[in-house]
């Protein structure tokens, strides 16, 4: 009963929906990210952020990096978004709506201006670069088995370093957030 359609979709997502399989989630990603930035209500911002994480995961899957997409969903939606939400709930949400005052003396207008300038510069480089005009190559895929082999082979030092970093970070986070004992 393995469905040929679903199988073909997962083998080459581009074939059926064309570019829209990437562009549609990308559009959702941008809208959700924009909403997350401008929302007054912190919880709404966090939920929009979660939506943008999901959309980013789908973009990864659509680009053929299905393992990265799943890891993105698992780590960001399952862990990071929940940690953010927990932090919001633990830090008394009374002052949620005040958050227009300026950090680093820029203010909303200043922040938006800096963002716009950086965006304009980046887009300028992107659209003048000859590198970026390359057409889409044949479907690329990153099989899970190969990723596993690479992680345990060439990248094993990096993998262990990441493991040490994560352990240290989580133990550190627990120690920082622990109540001070007299």
């Amino acid at each position: 009963m393995t469905c040929e359609f679903l199988k073909a979709c997962s083998a080459d997502p581009m074939k059926f929906l064309g570019e829209w399989f990437v562009l549609l989630p990308a559009l959702v990603l941008l809208m959700a990210a924009g909403a997350a930035v401008v929302m007054r209500n912190l919880i709404h911002a966090a939920l929009c952020l979660t939506l943008s994480f999901i959309a980013l995961g789908i973009v990864f899957i659509a680009l053929g990096a299905e393992f990265v997409g799943f890891v993105q969903l698992l780590v960001y939606v399952g862990a990071v978004a929940m940690v953010i939400v927990f932090a919001i709930l633990l830090t008394k949400p009374e002052r949620l709506t005040k958050s227009v005052s300026a950090f680093s003396g820029l203010g909303p207008a200043g922040g938006a201006a800096v963002g716009f300038v950086v965006l304009a510069a980046l887009l300028g480089f992107i659209f003048t670069s000859p590198l970026a005009k390359k057409p889409l190559p044949t479907p690329a895929s990153a099989p899970v088995a190969d990723i596993g082999q690479a992680l345990m082979g060439d990248y094993v030092v990096a993998l262990i370093a990441i493991g040490v970093l994560l352990t240290a970070a989580l133990v550190g986070a627990a120690v920082i957030a622990m109540e001070d004992k007299p």
Partner: peptide, 27 residues
């Protein structure tokens, strides 16, 4: 031969998608 979607990383998919439940409960 009866798998709706044959995925290389099926188990990972299960847990990745299942993470959405937590968001719903919080909402």
């Amino acid at each position: 031969d009866m798998v709706p979607a044959e995925l290389d990383a099926g188990i990972l998919y299960f847990f990745a998608v299942g993470a959405g439940t937590e968001v719903a409960v919080f909402m």
